[in-house]
Design a protein around this nucleic acid. Sequence first.
RNA 1: GGGCGGAUACUCAAGUGGCCAACGAGGGCAGACUGUAAAUCUGCUGACUUACGUCUACGGGGGUUCGAAUCCCUCUCCGCCCA
Length: 403
Amino acid sequence: MGASGHAIAFEVRGRSASTRARLGRVTTPHGSFDTPAFMPVATAATMKGLTPAQIESTGAQIILNNAYHLMLRPGAERVAHFGGSHSFMRWPKPILTDSGGFQAWSMTEGTKLTEEGVEFRSFVDGSKVMLSPERSIDVQNKIGADIIMAFDDCPPAKRPEQLPDDPQLSRKRRSNPEEHRKRLEEAIDRTTRWLARCVAAHARKDEQGLFGIVQGGTDLELRRRSVEQVCSFDLPGFAIGGVAVGESPAEIHRTVAEVAPMLPDAKPRYLMGVGYERDILEAVKAGVDMFDCVLPTRNGRKGYVFTPTGALRIRNSCHTLDAAPLDPTCDCLACAGGFSRGYLRHLFMADEMLGPTLLSIHNLRHFQRLMVDIRARIVDDRWFDLEERWPVVRPPGTAEAES
RNA sequence: GGGCGGAUACUCAAGUGGCCAACGAGGGCAGACUGUAAAUCUGCUGACUUACGUCUACGGGGGUUCGAAUCCCUCUCCGCCCA
């Protein structure tokens, strides 16, 4: 247990002079990890297609599991039977579980939101499943991650259906902004009430640190109110939720730049679900310490390659005869292993499972190397050359977040 | 030698007089993906063109018709049956 009285301790080891970025270390019952940290996502207690040794080879020091998915299959009790997720998936290092609050947003079909919790329809067998703060914490206690997340109410920025081109949808959204604000208000207050229930239900405070989650969309006033409420709880860390749920990169950057500094300086700050390299860099500069994102793995499995000079789609025909590695500067199993773009393309065209594995490894390593570089830049405060080594140039229309 | 059936775009395969540059599937080409129901989803796929459109095309050649992938003749090739 850390000096704070929590299972999780946070130590700030250095600060950037020109930005709010800080270098740190979080210590958990299963070891510590350096911050700013990128935490890859292993939803169902597996980093799809990778062994723990392969995960470790990417430099990951902490990974995510998802309470909702593990609750449905194989069941929290089953995971507990094997001694919790660390032992179950053979990953001895830190694990963080997401509470399932995000799934209420991403799987809206057939979900019912009440003060009690969210009623889902199980995608496994179609049965009705109630996920409440108490149930989520119970599940997370059983899974046994080092860091567990509050069960929050995470409203979408857009309609959940992925139809950004549908003019009808955007008209609907534009026509009633007050309705959306009302929804956000409801979400932050409910998130606070649910947090109190999470804290009360948490049965393993000495072994697992519970993080609170701030909501409020892109509305600064609502964010401020949410921060006041959530940070009034004595918790070992706080997260910014409700970001990257449909907003533009510019909105993400602005919101994070505003909200991160409001969170307690002495506790780790976790930006949930973000993101692209540019998003991570901007958030680090705003004072965020922890990130998670499915992009390196999900996109890697589809042939999308992250490189310092930008994205590569390995299926593109221009790689057919290319003997070069994905990234000549990369030391991952795929690049240092000498696998050519032409070979990797072949694996994808032939639907061979080694392809997604190797690209996931490469993408994960890409993000870990980005974090190593970012950490090295924080203390000496040299940011300019970092932007030459990583594709972090702000997209057009993004607010000038710094200075 | 005779009889019957078949030949459609990269592949398989629908289409039997105009609504056909031709259903569908595969393949190919390209795109999306931010707290993972994601090996998913979307678009394109004869040529030129932003598009309108124009041209070339349903085995080869000839014909009927205002109009043919579709009907007739003939040739080539393939399959099955009879000799």
